[in-house]
């Protein structure tokens, strides 16, 4: 709630012409926007460009933010549309999205570290690796719900889904994540009791 009030105050300052106040919002939301963009493109350089584009777009249309929702929800909706439009443009290129996803997964599987290194993996790293093996939609959903702390309704508004749809997808995504963790990291799970 405090964060929301701070956001509104910063937005008011920006709209009054104090451009520097926008840096506060950029600083606050850049890891969320960047992480979400990464969930779409899985490439740091592209994700950074997209995240930058999102913040510039948000700035240009800041007067349209009426405060009916949280600033973060409005911002993540821009992330969603910007990344989807990038992927749509890219799908006209030579590599199909599905192919890229397969390449990404197999790359990751080949890059699995030896067991002795895996044993040293922290829970954070295990979860991060497991989430990358989920479908893009599931990864985005979990990121929005857990990392960006958006409610089921807000996730629905961002992704253009109904609350019931979000609920079902969230359930499936968690089940899949749990399954991946159990399958790939059973030894670590036993020791760390996830």
């Amino acid at each position: 709630m405090q964060e929301q009030t701070d956001d509104i105050a910063a937005i008011q300052l920006v709209l009054q012409g104090k451009q520097a106040a926008y840096a506060t919002l950029v600083d606050r939301y850049q890891p969320y926007v960047f992480t979400l963009a990464m969930r779409y493109v899985n490439n740091r350089e592209v994700a950074e460009e997209l995240a930058q584009d999102v913040f510039v777009k948000a700035y240009r249309f800041l007067a349209d933010f009426k405060g009916n929702s949280k600033f973060s929800t409005w911002l993540y909706t821009i992330v969603n549309t910007t990344c989807l439009s990038y992927l749509r443009k890219k799908s006209n290129g030579t590599v199909l999205l599905e192919e890229e996803k397969i390449i990404g997964i197999s790359d990751h599987q080949f890059a699995v570290k030896p067991v002795d290194i895996l044993e040293q993996k922290t829970t954070k790293q295990m979860l991060d690796s497991a989430i990358k093996l989920l479908s893009e939609d599931d990864a985005r959903l979990l990121t929005l719900f857990y990392q960006a702390e958006q409610s089921v309704d807000e996730v629905g508004a961002i992704m253009g889904l109904t609350a019931i749809n979000v609920k079902v997808r969230l359930f499936r995504a968690r089940a899949k994540l749990k399954e991946i963790l159990e399958r790939k990291y059973s030894r670590e799970i036993n020791t760390k009791t996830i």
């Binding site: 520097a20 850049q30 969320y32 960047f34 992480t35 930058q52 954070k124 979860l127 989430i131 968690r174």
Partner: peptide
């Protein structure tokens, strides 16, 4: 675990400067 352990990715140090 999910709520507390998922790590956020960080963009480059120059990110805010680039945006501004």
């Amino acid at each position: 675990e999910l709520a507390g352990s998922l790590e956020l990715e960080q963009p480059s140090m120059r990110f805010t400067k680039n945006v501004m």
